[in-house]
């Protein structure tokens, strides 16, 4: 059954989750009202709303290029191998789970970042210490796996992981 637009009698083809305010709010709109909603700047110009607007616009764009609901749902299920966060979790809370998310969700984040900042390349200060990023993200993954091993009461694996963490930490110092 087709859903009606919340603002008129046309069919709702845009399904937007508004993340500003306390609870995420579902919006079902026809194309005209969705465009009006996405381009209006009535919302407060806060961090969260620029984020929400960028997210909503991205979803609308994906719908517009003909991705089906199933394809979007599949996208939402993708998770980061390092911290375990799903793309859906990121979308609903507006916060990423670890530095590696910028790498593994790159195709989704790229247009979002461009939308928020109008740029995609950092110009400015860099830290003097070079981060060996592969080793670093490995530590995040190892700690998570250790926590999971403990939760599953697999103490042998947990202690192996602990040793591995210590070794990696030492190499990094």
């Amino acid at each position: 059954m087709a859903m009606k637009c919340q603002k008129c009698d046309k069919q709702a083809t845009f399904h937007i989750t508004e993340l500003t305010g306390g609870k995420p709010q579902e919006l079902h709109l026809c194309e005209d009202h969705a465009r009006e909603y996405l381009t209006s700047s009535g919302a407060e110009p806060t961090n969260t709303s620029s984020m929400a607007a960028a997210l909503a616009q991205q979803v609308a764009q994906q719908m517009a290029v003909g991705q089906t609901a199933e394809e979007l749902a599949e996208l939402d299920q993708q998770s980061c191998p390092v911290c375990g966060i799903t793309f859906y979790q990121f979308r609903s809370q507006g916060r990423l789970g670890c530095p590696h998310d910028y790498v593994c969700f790159q195709p989704q984040l790229e247009p979002l970042i461009l939308n928020i900042h109008g740029e995609s390349e950092h110009k400015g200060k860099s830290p003097r210490r070079a981060a060996g990023s592969a080793k670093r993200t490995q530590l995040i993954r190892l700690r998570r796996e250790m926590k999971e091993a403990i939760e599953e009461e697999d103490y042998e694996r947990a202690s192996q992981l602990r040793d591995q963490i210590r070794e990696t930490e030492k190499e990094e110092l």
């Binding site: 984020m51 790498v103 928020i116 003097r128």
Partner: peptide, 27 residues
């Protein structure tokens, strides 16, 4: 700078300093 002498910050060559929310990434 002083804090960074002893800790390693999350940093991406192209995106800069990495933050929990993409609205803060870069600087």
């Amino acid at each position: 700078d002083l804090i960074e002498e002893k800790v390693t910050y999350a940093f991406h060559d192209r995106l800069g300093y990495l933050t929990a929310c993409p609205t803060n990434v870069g600087t």
